[in-house]
């Protein structure tokens, strides 16, 4: 089967699987599948299915898709298979901002109320974008890939230390911070779905349009420049896609691990395609992964619930180990 056809089949399979998981997601929860059957005559059941399960499941897909897109962009931009969406300081920026917001708002029980969540969401998005901007300032722009990576590492360490300081000063926020760092899809409502899906489409369009340039960049920066590609503009646009998609996902779900890293690899292992198609398929894959993890998180120990970030970390970590093993047998990871 040709690469084009395999990519198309994979896209269809990912979309159909997502539709099936959406229905499954509407059926899984503490009240079980009964709520679905009684929703048309029971207001409480309707609320559970329509206001809680469906937006949560769809939101998990949207957040996963944003992370998958960001992962594919990061790996293409930095020409590194281990690059992930949190590379440029977005995660540490979001975590610091959330810790400051929690310290200011006060910790639970109020921290879980939706008004406060909205405040935390804004703080997380602002922090993620600020983290990326700080990385860009330290790297003196977008022209040097290595400088960008180093600046991202430095921002990660420094903002991480600052977050620890805030946590140390206000220990009451520890539990809420733990929830943010582990990631959760439990607070996603329709408005959050709207924000994420509204951002996903234009960001995906930009990344798709720049796919041909990412292909050129894969041959090396000098070759890309020799082909007349506007590397500065292109990097700036791709970093904007990376920062905004990561920020939007982190703001709604916390720091979900491995989805951004693993999605592009999974797509490549099934259907190696040029970057234009890779960003779309990685988004579909990321959406499916996080949606699947969300359903599993509600189902495995029902009626209790596992933090979805723990599931993605366990599954993603296992996959990463397998990938390292496979690459090392083929002669190196680079």
């Amino acid at each position: 089967m040709s690469g084009d056809r395999r990519g198309l089949v994979l896209a269809l399979a990912l979309l159909v699987s997502a539709a099936v998981l959406l229905l499954l997601g509407a059926s899984v929860g503490s009240t079980g599948v009964e709520s679905v059957f009684t929703a048309h005559r029971d207001a409480a059941a309707w609320q559970i299915v329509w206001d809680i399960r469906l937006p949560r499941t769809l939101g998990a897909w949207a957040a996963g898709a944003l992370l998958g897109l960001a992962g594919a962009v990061a790996q293409g931009l930095f020409r590194n298979p281990l690059a992930d969406p949190y590379l440029l300081g977005s995660a540490s920026g979001a975590a610091l901002a959330v810790s400051i917001a929690l310290a200011l708002f006060g910790a639970s029980p109020y921290a879980t109320q939706w008004l406060v969540r909205l405040g935390l969401t804004g703080a997380a998005f602002g922090g993620a974008v600020a983290g990326v901007l700080l990385t860009l300032v330290l790297a003196n722009g977008v022209l040097h890939t290595l400088r960008l990576l180093l600046a991202g590492v430095i921002v990660g360490v420094v903002l991480g230390a600052a977050r620890d300081l805030v946590t140390l000063a206000v220990p009451d926020i520890l539990q809420a911070m733990q929830g943010f760092i582990l990631g959760s899809t439990g607070f996603i409502g329709w408005s959050a779905c709207g924000v994420m899906l509204g951002l996903l489409l234009p960001l995906l369009a930009v990344a798709w349009a720049l796919g041909r340039m990412l292909d050129g960049l894969a041959l090396g920066e000098a070759t890309a420049a020799s082909l007349g590609l506007p590397l500065g503009v292109m990097r700036a646009a791709l970093i904007a896609v990376l920062g905004l998609s990561t920020g939007a996902a982190v703001a709604q779900t916390g720091l979900i691990a491995f989805v951004g890293l693993a999605s592009p690899h999974l797509v490549r292992s099934i259907a190696p395609v040029p970057h234009g198609r890779l960003v779309v398929l990685a988004a579909l894959m990321g959406g499916l992964l996080l949606m699947g993890a969300d359903v599993m998180a509600r189902w495995v120990v029902a009626p209790q619930e596992l933090p979805v970030g723990v599931l993605t970390a366990v599954l993603g970590g296992t996959y990463l180990l397998w990938l390292m093993h496979r690459r090392s047998r083929r002669g190196g990871f680079a």
Partner: peptide, 17 residues
């Protein structure tokens, strides 16, 4: 780029193309 083509040493990556 239309007038001058360049082939570098060890052009890498693009394994999935």
């Amino acid at each position: 780029a239309r007038q001058l083509a360049w082939l570098g040493q060890n052009e890498g990556g693009a394994d999935d193309l």
